[in-house]
Design a protein around this nucleic acid. Structure first.
Lengths: 207, 207
DNA sequence: TGATAATACGAACGGTCGTGCTACTTTGTC
DNA sequence: GACAAAGTAGCACGACCGTTCGTATTATCA
């Protein structure tokens, strides 16, 4: 023994990726729980059982969809922000990339995580836990950005970093919510304005 | 014409109210769409068909539940805020009453409207429209509060009232979300702090 | 009091859900 | 080229969904 390790076929890997990609997008419209295996299968043109064979249960599909959405979010929002050349620039890029991710739109029903957590925050289980982890990680990322901008002398070190992160994320989520509710862009405009003004106030150059 | 108007019996009115009261509470946990007639009927100890007879369809039940939740929200948050004796006091009371409504808690799954809109914002139909109306009305109420505080000379008239309302509501919704996700009270503490600091900054006495 | 309509129930409808099971096809490895 | 593993489809299951219907009960008003 033994070359008997299980290997996954290339086409299977590809369909699995296609399923998960469609699942993340559909989940922002129908809900991560409301999404049904049958409709998802129809949507990508395969049979319910054929799709189902890639996952042991609906819950595993949901968990895998969260991983996929996390990767999509990283690519769209987090990674491109690393290119900015100052800590404050990276923080601002993070916020602006989030709005770009809403406007493109990457997901038809707005931010995947905002939609999924709102739906599952009262449903105990591993799916909820994974979403909470993601949300906490996102908030921690913003808070770290604030701290680095403080250490870099761009933001006032007297600002409460966790509170400032709370405020910035609140504006982003509110922008997402208004955009999904009204379709137009005014909600995102207000969110951008709120963030700009809040970061201006936290700038150390003010004194 | 015309004596053919439907009369409603007193006991029927009472059970109908009991159904709707339970429906609003259950809806914040299971979702307004995810709520099923059968589980709701079990929860209040009556038969599915007996319950169903009070409403022509599930959608009518949802619409009636929104009316009931609106009334509960008015009693818990809006009406008591009218007692404050200055416009700014009323605005602050509005925010504080909202946090009290979350802490009591009036609904087990957090704010009814935050939960319902997040679930149904991508489901077109009269239920969604009614929720959007409610949300817009709430934002307009806050904005009017800001305007009156500006006219009363308590808040800086140069502040963008709509934007300030956006920010205050963003903090409240974010506080609600964190509380439902983590159970503890730290999210509400941050929301309170954010609102206090934001209103301080908008005060006219600052100069 | 008797007539009448609102109320509540049990049973059942067709439909969809997640989930197994079986059989056939495709692919990758010796 | 044989053989095992993986992918896919078809089918059926039990459970639950919203909804309807027939019927027994009961509050209300003439």
């Amino acid at each position: 023994m033994s070359a008997t390790t299980r290997r996954r076929r290339a086409d299977g890997e590809q369909t699995r990726a296609a399923i998960l990609d469609a699942a993340t997008k559909l989940a922002t419209v129908e809900g991560l729980d409301g999404l049904s295996i049958g409709r998802l299968a129809d949507h990508i043109g395969m049979s319910k059982s054929g799709l189902y064979a890639h996952f042991g249960s609906k819950e595993e599909l949901q968990l895998a969809a969260i991983d996929t959405a996390t990767e999509i979010f990283r690519d769209a929002v987090i990674r491109p922000a690393r290119r900015a050349d100052t800590p404050l620039g990276r923080l601002e890029a993070l916020c602006e990339n989030f709005f770009g991710y809403l406007e493109r739109p990457v997901f038809p029903g707005g931010c995947f995580f905002a939609s999924a957590t709102a739906e599952l925050d009262t449903h105990p289980g591993p799916v909820r836990e994974k979403l909470v982890e993601s949300l906490d990680g996102w908030l921690a990322l913003i808070e770290r950005g604030v701290r680095e901008a403080q250490e870099g002398g761009e933001l006032d070190p007297l600002e409460d970093a966790a509170l400032l992160a709370f405020e910035l994320d609140a504006f982003m989520k509110m922008g997402n919510s208004l955009r999904v509710l009204h379709g137009d862009r005014s909600g995102l405009g207000q969110a951008r304005a709120a963030i700009r003004s809040r970061l201006d106030r936290a700038r150390v150059t003010k004194r």
